[in-house]
């Protein structure tokens, strides 16, 4: 499949969103709202749940299903308070020794006046430094779109996994085509050039694992449930300094010469 077809699948109407994963993989989910600074960003859902009985912190982009819900969720594009809410829950996970699971599905952080005046750049930057040093295991799973810094702000993790049709890119192919070539008809070419599919990113060592998407989607949830549990149990057994060194090295290697 071509890169652009993957992207179309990642964006397709009816594709399961963040909350579907939370409901199907975990039990006893308790949502925790708000960043204690400004408000509650509905583009990011965060809380505590059990994964095969083990307490974990779960954070997910939520794009919304129906049109009304999409608007309420701002189409999954978070404001600074969304990233700050996520970070607050991650710090609590660290405090109580819970692993963190993030589900990433966003076209990007919100690009608007409200986001800029509350410090979108600062909020993302803080998540990058704090997640890098978070003293508990983190696994991020790309389930749909992974757009730029707004996706990375939930993906500074010990392992990053991607669904077969998920994408992850520094810029949308639309943005790339219009900025670089001033030609919006070159979107498919841009998608190809950016190397944004799960296979591309596996080859580039940006992700550790690609989760297949069989016709029966419930298998995806079953696979994730089992694999997340086993991986997190193993990571929980590691010494924290070793875990953090590996996380540092995981990102330090990109472009190192």
């Amino acid at each position: 499949m071509e890169a652009y077809d993957r992207l179309a699948a990642a964006r397709a109407k009816g594709r399961p969103t963040g909350l579907c994963y939370i409901r199907n993989i975990f039990t006893d989910f308790m949502e925790m709202h708000g960043d204690r600074r400004f408000g509650d960003d509905k583009a990011i859902v965060a809380g505590i749940a059990r994964l095969c009985g083990m307490p974990v912190t779960v954070i997910a982009n939520e794009k919304g299903g129906s049109t009304k819900e999409k608007v309420r969720r701002n189409f999954g594009s978070a404001h600074p308070e969304g990233y700050r809410k996520a970070l607050r829950q991650m710090k609590l996970a660290e405090k109580f020794g819970r692993p963190v699971v993030c589900f990433v599905d966003t076209a990007g952080a919100f690009c608007g006046i409200s986001a800029e005046e509350r410090g979108e750049g600062q909020a993302i930057a803080e998540n990058l430094t704090e997640m890098m040093a978070l003293k508990t295991p983190v696994i991020s799973v790309f389930i749909g779109e992974g757009g730029s810094g707004g996706a990375l702000a939930l993906a500074v993790a010990d392992e990053v996994w991607m669904l077969e049709n998920a994408c992850y890119s520094v810029i949308s192919p639309e943005g790339c085509a219009s900025i670089l070539w001033r030609d919006s008809s070159k979107v498919k070419e841009a998608a190809q050039c950016l190397k944004m599919t799960a296979d591309d990113l596996l080859r580039l060592d940006v992700v550790e694992r690609v989760i297949p998407e069989p016709a029966d989607f419930s298998e995806v949830y079953e696979t994730l449930k089992t694999e997340l549990y086993h991986s997190l149990v193993l990571k929980k057994a590691e010494e924290i300094p070793a875990l953090l060194q590996k996380r540092y090295d995981r990102f330090r290697k990109f472009g190192a010469t």
């Binding site: 810094g149 990375l152 992850y168 890119s169 520094v170 050039c193 944004m196 580039l204 990109f254 472009g255």
Partner: peptide, 11 residues
């Protein structure tokens, strides 16, 4: 540099 440039933010 595609995704590798994004990774520089984390690095």
């Amino acid at each position: 540099e595609g995704i590798l440039s994004l990774m520089q933010m984390a690095k």
